[in-house]
Write a protein that binds this DNA or RNA. Structure first.
Lengths: 194, 194
DNA sequence: GTCTATACCGGGATAGAC
DNA sequence: GTCTATCCCGGTATAGAC
């Protein structure tokens, strides 16, 4: 068994992303992440007390990176408010298929009991960004604006979930193709609200 | 350990639905289903050679029942083609939250290698029903019609996945509420295509 | 057709050596 | 801070008794 030199804590988080992308959250295991780094199965427990604390750290990084990519996608989409909001769906599909760490990881049920301050801060920032993009399209009602966000996340999450579950195996199932279709669907949903 | 009297094969399928609804596909196990019925963990293997064959039988029943509920929901929605197609999303959310056996179970990746004729027939019938409802809204292009179906399945599946993953925990997360919002989103998507 | 018992596997987590 | 070694648990699947 090799001896890890460097920041194993950071390496564990990075390897967790690779593991999530490859196997998904269902088969995520601390032991597999350790194997991927060539360290013993006990090593991760020096840095995280248990599996959920590792996943919580992954969640915090995922929320930060997803937020960054959403901001970049919105800016690349131009000035139209609907296009900017619809870009969220594309960024989500691309991030999720690349990293495996979507909202089901970021907001995983078991994690809310952990009181991880970093994670709390990053998820809050992510939601704030989504709200800023959505109020530009639906400023009349806070409730309706929240529903619009959830609609767009639902369609983006649904596309990626069906993609990873093999539902699109017979059609053109490339992630990029699905991303553009998610953007179109999101734009239709946003337009219907305006 | 109790001795099961009656049709254990059928009972195993029914108990699998209950287990899926309670724990989800991730934690589905043959042993847990056997426990639920009060039989030994070896008993299921007299009726299904392995775990995947049990899930394949569950998939066939799920496809048939989901199709029936979709037909009923469409008929209850009236004569408008958009309303009939949008009703699919509501039926899907209700079925999925009640049984846990959505498209990720019906079309689970590992099952396509099994050559279960009953399952093949039921999934085909389900897709045919969806196509009949979608051509009424988008008759111009087969490709676009398929995309419309996938859009609506995506939004319905996404809503249910986020609901079961606890994303809606702070808002009103009842299944019925989510079902009506999925119908509205589906109607918006269908209208945008017309 | 179902039981008990068991082999085997893999993941979570800990103890103690270095 | 990482290792080796180990315990415990639970799932899959099989063998053989009834």
């Amino acid at each position: 068994m090799g001896y890890h030199h460097g920041d194993l804590r950071v390496a564990l988080i990075e390897a967790s992303f690779a593991s999530l992308a490859e196997y998904g959250l269902q088969r995520f295991s601390v032991a597999a992440v350790a194997r991927r780094l060539g360290v013993s199965s006990a090593a991760p427990y020096r840095h995280f007390p248990d599996r959920d604390h590792l996943l919580s750290a992954v969640s915090a990084v995922a929320a930060r990176e997803l937020r960054e990519e959403i901001v970049a996608a919105a800016d690349a989409a131009g000035a139209d408010e609907v296009d900017r909001l619809a870009a969220v769906a594309g960024a989500y599909v691309r991030f999720m298929t690349r990293t495996g760490a979507g909202f089901h990881v970021i907001f995983a049920a078991g994690l809310s009991a952990l009181h991880d301050e970093e994670r709390r801060e990053q998820t809050r920032a992510l939601m704030t960004t989504l709200i800023e993009l959505a109020v530009a399209v639906e400023p009349s009602s806070y409730q309706e604006m929240l529903h619009l966000i959830q609609e767009i996340i639902a369609v983006a999450h649904g596309y990626t979930a069906l993609l990873t579950d093999g539902f699109f195996q017979l059609s053109n199932g490339s992630a990029e193709h699905i991303a553009t279709r998610a953007v179109r669907a999101a734009a239709d949903l946003a337009t219907a609200r305006r």
